[in-house]
Design a binder for these strands. Sequence first.
DNA 1: CAACATGTGG
DNA 2: TTCACACTGTCTG
DNA 3: GACAGTGTGTCTCCACATGTTGTA
Length: 550
Amino acid sequence: MADVPSLAPDYYLGNFLSLLGGLDRYRDLLSDSELGFLARFDQLGHDARCLLVRLLLRKGQWFRISKLHYPELDDLPSALNELRLAGFIETGLAAPHSELNSLLTLAEWRTALVSEDPKAAPLGVSKGATKTQLAALIEQKGLWSSLAEYWRSDCLWLRDDPMALFKLLYFGNSYQDLSEFVLGDMGLRRYENYAVDKALRRFDTRADIDAALLLNQLSEQLELSGRILERDELELMLARCPHPLATGGGLEDKRQQLRGRIARELERRGADDLALAIYGQLAQTPARERSARCLEKLARFEEALAVVEAIIANPWDEQELAAARRMGPRLARQLGRPWLRAPASTIPGQQLALPPFEGKVEQAAVTWFESRGLRAWHLENAFVCGLFGLALWDIIFMPVKGAFDNPFQSRPRDMYRPGFVAARQVALDERLQRLREGELSILTRHFETKQGLVNDWVNWKLFDCEVLEAVLSHLDGALLTDLLERMLKDPQFYRSGWPDLLVLKQVGLAFVEIKGPGDRLQDSQRRWFDWFQARQLDASVLHISWLTGD
DNA sequence: CAACATGTGG
DNA sequence: TTCACACTGTCTG
DNA sequence: GACAGTGTGTCTCCACATGTTGTA
Ligand SMILES: [Mn+2]
């Protein structure tokens, strides 16, 4: 752990330049002000560049000059001056009200208030008041602007913040940032060394870029404060993403996902009719299920049943099918119609009473199996996903056109899109054939040579070498191939629902879903049991109860 | 003064 | 900061 | 049993400084 390589004092500048290098392919889609930003950046001296990058990497656009502390820059004032002259920053401005909470400390609020009115101390300015309490007092007395005035000479404003755009263009998402570079340099997070297509573009028009930025912003807003937004605020969000977007890049999918989440929030506000109208425009699950539920809430049972029947006739995924099968009988009864129940699959289950255990039920079960001399791991989906990732590693990362545009991807861009298999058909066919013939050493090879590399499918901490050994000695190629073929039909979908425990019995592997008191099988968990039964595998549900008494 | 929250940086 | 899963509470038949 | 809402953990690093809150 000690041998973390030391980095150059201006390592972050190099990283930022690498990021800019990835943006060349989009120059024709940048605005004049963005191009101007880049041109002016090029003209800056070393230290001014460093300082600007430092500021760009930080949160917000307002900073305190006196609190800037960058030992690697030997003349901060002149770097600041250079940035000011080049139009990147402004100093000495009074910060807006909304910034004063994070920009100034409680003590600094008091200093300014007391200076404004020496007799303020006896009021709420006395110590003990929290920031919230004092904020209310300042609000009431209309003193925010004098606070801002008092500290203005120490304030620094970053005029533009293009980082959201740069990150979107470089990484293709809003959650990765420049720390990827540092983590890579220090060996803390390593990615596969796949071929990066430096000319590949995720966007072809500026409108798509702006739409992506907007969708990111709206999603973030909904995630952050969705629960407290009023109905009209939600409708406003809807109005901001009304038009269908380019399909193929996943933009339209994102838009629909966002609108679905907004509609769900509208349901919670009782706006079932409006939610219904939105769901009707969506082509992704669970829109039809939600439609049916809205119709049911609105007592429009005929229409609800029609939706349910449409789902059953042509399910988009197994989740909505399961939901429709639950709703069908209820709706049919409302309408006095007969309903043909799908035969319920029987899932083998056992009961087990254990002494009270501090910690998770699954761990208690693992301990119980081990006390009976069996190895057991609580892996959940990490087991199947690990098999998938290790068996197909090199195919997942093979240089398919359009798959990789930056060095920090945990999967190809089309991993969860319908064309994934077709784009790798030959390699997949050959791999499955070899696995079918029992050549499981492929997994071992990837386990050893790729150890620690980021892969969406492989959780290295959970899928350790003992698990691999258990797999190699008890899983045959035919079964593994069958499993992979099923997963390849919808890689995203089959990432979930696998039973909690992998148990190594004398005769082979067993898969056990643990259910504590009050926990029941979820829809996603049922679908794997169908597969287990068809293959006559040892899979069951273990219902745990706690032994009471002292 | 300790516990907690948050931002930062290598 | 998403997503899968567990847990809790309510209503219903 | 069905369903909604909420909590938890998360290979989305981890040590550290700073600031806030409440006496853990
Ligand atoms: Mn379970």
